[in-house]
Design a protein around this nucleic acid. Sequence first.
DNA 1: TTGTAAGCGTTATCAC
DNA 2: GTGATAACGCTTACAA
Lengths: 340, 340
Amino acid sequence: MKKRLTLKLIAKELDVSISTVSKALRDSAEISEDTRQKIKAFAKLYNYKPNNIALSLKNRKSKTIGVIIPEIVHHYFTTVISGIEQVANEKGYHVIICTSNNSFDKEVINMEILANGSTDGFILSVAKETQQKGDYHHLTEVIEQGMPLVMFDRVIEEINCDKVIIDDTLGAKKAVQHLVNLGCKKIGLISTIDYVSVGKLRTQGYLEALSENNLELNESLILKVDDFDQSEEEISRFLSDKSMDAVFAVNEHFAIYAIKAFKEQGLDVPKDVSVIAFTDGELSKRFIPSLTTINQHGEEMGAQAARLLIKKLENDDSEDEPFETIIIETGLVERNSTKR
Amino acid sequence: MKKRLTLKLIAKELDVSISTVSKALRDSAEISEDTRQKIKAFAKLYNYKPNNIALSLKNRKSKTIGVIIPEIVHHYFTTVISGIEQVANEKGYHVIICTSNNSFDKEVINMEILANGSTDGFILSVAKETQQKGDYHHLTEVIEQGMPLVMFDRVIEEINCDKVIIDDTLGAKKAVQHLVNLGCKKIGLISTIDYVSVGKLRTQGYLEALSENNLELNESLILKVDDFDQSEEEISRFLSDKSMDAVFAVNEHFAIYAIKAFKEQGLDVPKDVSVIAFTDGELSKRFIPSLTTINQHGEEMGAQAARLLIKKLENDDSEDEPFETIIIETGLVERNSTKR
DNA sequence: TTGTAAGCGTTATCAC
DNA sequence: GTGATAACGCTTACAA
């Protein structure tokens, strides 16, 4: 096992002082051309690389970004990470990813650990449990310590920090408007219960779209799924005997369950019923029929979040900079689950 | 902005020496009950947390694991990460994830950066480009420096390190055997070109299964997809006029394209043709018909890899321990794309 | 029982 | 042009 080369070792080997080596390697003009060459050659030959940890300690910054997300086995979040990574690497930052598994405790612990020097700032999408609990002390603490925090997707309004979100309400409106434009009149909604903020917002968009088009609101056409594991049956039950001509689902999975349920009722999508979903993932593309969706542009969200964070990190007097909220525009991806 | 509390600050505040504080906080018997209480109370009150970076520097270990994967937007890899994280966190390790994007250069750079103190060891699945290139200097270097390395999924035989793999050949055999058991005789294969080791191994399993069942090998029933982006058309072309009664695809996507192609030919899956796929993902579950697959147990792979690595990390004389190769057993998940 | 000092690997300041 | 020294935050012999 080869020992890692340090400045000290080089210095000893070349019989100069540590500071000379340090300066030579950083091309300081103080050092004579001669020694500089010699030292650099030696360092190169033995493949010297400075120790990041020592640098972090010295500079009091780690050049790394901590990302905390609710789940990793989730297409949308991986696209966000991908966007974060690209921008971060471009600007010389690493990324540490931790998952909260939607647990409040794990979110808190992860933040605490990373905040102890490992990370210069955070990009975070809060855990479901945190949203329910309404306990945000870990977030405020980190902010008070002067660590920049950027929240994305599932954000907390009361927390003062940069945010990157999509306009869920507008996206939902777009979806419903698309259905209306196709001539649909009896449009169902499959959403989640309201403490999940996106569920609430998308429901609101649905309502607004209806009213803007002078369509009557019919509460019996709205389903709020409580338990994801039971959702397939819930949806199937909900969809029977409602004679809708379209359904707007707040995610791919609900949309697919809806399509299955319709099929079982002998209805064809899109001939008899149109289905549109929020969230554009692998499933939407491949399913038959492929799904018309509202795209959330995860990669762009990640990229923007990283840019916001790095801007704060590299701005010395970011203290008095105001916080920004970037709204990513959603896009309609027209495929085969809505008729033309 | 609150400043982070350090031992030094506590010492000054309480008018004791730094080492007294350090010892007190670590419950050293050297310190009197009195001062210990006082110091601990103060630390607790002001929420002292030791600085990880300083600890890393001091202990010359970071208690973090570097994970390098080809892509993050990929269901299988996320399940592996999930497994790694669980075990790692349990044992007090963090996880840094980097993606190589299947680029050799990015893989090398990531490893170099992480190797400079950020990480105690690596878990890695090699980039496609690295496999093609056959240049493994970054791997051997890291090993020579005494950093344990565990490879998973896409491993390199020549490299001496712990490995976690699935038995691709056996898995493929299982798949084909399943088809044979269902009475299929003319079984096609949709694979990738051979430099991707899994493509090669799974192809081999296919061949072995055929010969074990005394089925004739027909080269025209084998497709090796070169360009993923073109695969849909390639597969569709390949499948026309072959009159197979079954297809084994080395991943979900190929299987789905196959099903689509069959449909367009007016054939029903599974009534007319059976389709089975390697890799069990989201798509397999939700697609209609749902896919019969060979499950790779990504989470378990990740967990095992993490266990192997941590074992090496915590074993002082791991130097002379032999390297292990753990083989994860694949499982057949029977769903609707194969007839009964 | 408490404190001093060296060291982890680096850089910046200042002296020679 | 080169080197000694202090500092980043922490632990740990060793001294007092």
